[in-house]
């Protein structure tokens, strides 16, 4: 009787691990998608290159994570795997691409924040900054996760994230303390994005389960995040922020804003037009 309970818990933890991995992958992919929209349209050639580099890092991270999720899923009986992931075109094999291309809006678990449109350079920078700080502290804790592969992915990514954090902090400071216009645009960007930050620190059921072993606490994540944001905002002469109780939420559980549908329609159209073709 007792061993049954343990087995059940392990299954629940594996399921949660898959959801968590997908959640991380979806965040990376959607951020990569948004950043890649800038390619060829940046304010100056050097920064176009810089932002594309970051987009490449995000796409790379999402691939590592999807590949891992696919590996976990392929180890399960197919029926079981398909019950865990809501594909709307059933793939022959579960791969990084079937996970990215054959799930619809309701199956994506990314935070609402990251699917928001790019807006201007200020809003894009601020979003990357928020994401980088969040990922920096999350991955630092994740490096100790009981799951070795997830911990290894976190360890690799934390190097990239450290750079993104430096790059985006510097831009937040430049824009906040630059011209009147750039400061105004930063304030507008904060207004536009702040309603979505609360969701980052509101654990979904699968996160609580998956991160339980490494004592990852969302309270700590939130205070680390907010301290860093306010520290950089102070240097940037931007007003300090606090996280209130009311915020937009739902993405992590598949309830999204209208924007994600357009992203996926664009991203997935070839795979959906020619199911199971090789590219």
């Amino acid at each position: 009787m007792e061993s049954d309970t343990i087995v059940m818990n392990e299954t629940a933890i594996t399921d949660a691990l898959i959801d968590c991995t997908l959640q991380l992958a979806d965040d990376s992919l959607i951020m990569g998608h948004r950043c890649s929209e800038w390619c060829g349209h940046g304010p100056v050639l050097e920064q176009d290159i810089a932002l594309t580099n970051i987009a490449l890092d995000y796409v790379g991270q999402s691939r590592n994570l999807y590949q891992y999720a696919a590996l976990l899923l392929e180890q399960l009986p197919k029926e079981k795997a398909l019950s865990l992931v809501d594909f709307d075109i059933i793939p022959e094999h579960i791969t990084e691409d079937s996970l990215a291309y054959l799930r619809d809006v309701g199956a994506f678990k990314n935070h609402l924040l990251f699917e928001q449109p790019n807006g201007d350079w200020a809003q894009t920078i601020l979003k990357i900054f928020f994401f980088s700080v969040y990922r920096f502290y999350l991955f630092q804790q994740l490096q100790n996760n009981a799951d070795e592969r997830l911990a290894a992915i976190a360890e690799k990514s934390v190097k990239e994230v450290t750079y993104h954090l430096k790059w985006s902090s510097e831009w937040v400071i430049r824009l906040g303390d630059g011209t009147d216009e750039s400061k105004f645009r930063m304030l507008q960007a904060i207004d536009a994005l702040w309603p979505f930050v609360g969701e980052l620190f509101e654990p979904a059921g699968y996160e609580t389960l998956c991160y339980y072993s490494d004592m990852l606490t969302f309270e700590r994540l939130r205070s680390d995040w907010l301290n860093k944001i306010n520290q950089i905002f102070e240097t940037a002469t931007l007003p300090p922020q606090s996280i209130g109780r009311w915020h937009q939420t739902g993405g992590k559980n598949g309830y999204h804003s209208e924007h994600l549908g357009y992203i996926l329609a664009e991203m997935q159209f070839l795979q959906r037009t020619f199911p199971n073709a090789i590219w």
Partner: peptide, 8 residues
Amino acid sequence: NGAWVREA
């Protein structure tokens, strides 16, 4: 669109 960024 990038002018204000470069100035800032």
